[in-house]
Amino acid sequence: MDKRTLRRAVQTARQAMPESERRAGATAIRENLLDLPWVQMAGLVACYWSTDEEPATHGLVFALWKHGTTVILPVLRGDRDLDWAVYDGPDSLAPGPFGIMEPVDTRRGVEAVRTAALVIVPALAVDRTTGVRLGRGGGSYDRALARVGPNVPTVALLHEGELIDGVPAEAHDRRVRHAALPSGIISLG
């Protein structure tokens, strides 16, 4: 299956998922992550503000922030690369391009993701053997992941059934080290 076909299939399945199942899944993912010592000890976490049918991150971002973790969220630049800014509570966000909420704090630059002790990214699917993630096709998170050190945990959030075999990969595609699903955290390749 090519990337475009797989993207469509996952997006169709996500749209058909009942809202109650999405909410329960997001709560389980949040609790699974917050139980991990390497998440609890991460002083700076790069995350994202979820949209649409993605596993919701709003509660996770808020919980990390309330715990005292510094959370940086992406700010989409005109060249589709990701700048980063600090999340400082729900009132620190404003709509950005495509209506996605972004922090209004000072931009820290595209290299800010290098300083994160944990990087949490969106994905439509992840290959269970290789850790290759399928994004939406803009390459923004592949560029960000390319800046992350080899020992930093990278985690893609997924709904059940989105950790699969055979995600198509190209040279620019970046891998993640973990997949977070409602059923648990899976370490990859």
Rank of each mutant, 00 (worst) to 15 (best):
R14N: 07
Q40W: 07
L64R: 03
E21Y: 09
A16W: 05
W65P: 04
Y48D: 07
D52C: 10
L36H: 04
A26M: 05
P37M: 09
P18E: 10
E54M: 01
P37D: 12
P37H: 12
D52K: 15
R22F: 10
G25C: 00
C47W: 03
I29T: 00
T27V: 02
E19F: 11
L64S: 05
N32F: 02
S50T: 02
S50L: 03
Y48E: 08
D52I: 07
E53M: 13
G25D: 00
E54C: 02
F62K: 12
S20P: 04
A46D: 07
L36M: 14
P55M: 09
P37I: 05
R22Y: 07
L34D: 04
T51P: 05
D35T: 06
P55A: 08
E54Y: 06
G59I: 00
S20K: 12
R23E: 03
M17A: 11
D52H: 15
M41D: 15
N32Q: 13
M17S: 06
L36W: 08
P18H: 12
T27R: 10
Q40C: 08
W65Y: 14
D35F: 07
A16T: 02
A63P: 08
S20H: 11
E53Q: 15
L60F: 15
S50I: 02
Q15R: 15
V39G: 04
H58W: 15
P55F: 00
L60N: 04
S20W: 05
A28G: 08
M17P: 03
E21A: 13
C47F: 06
E21W: 06
A63D: 13
W49P: 01
L44D: 02
E31V: 01
A46W: 09
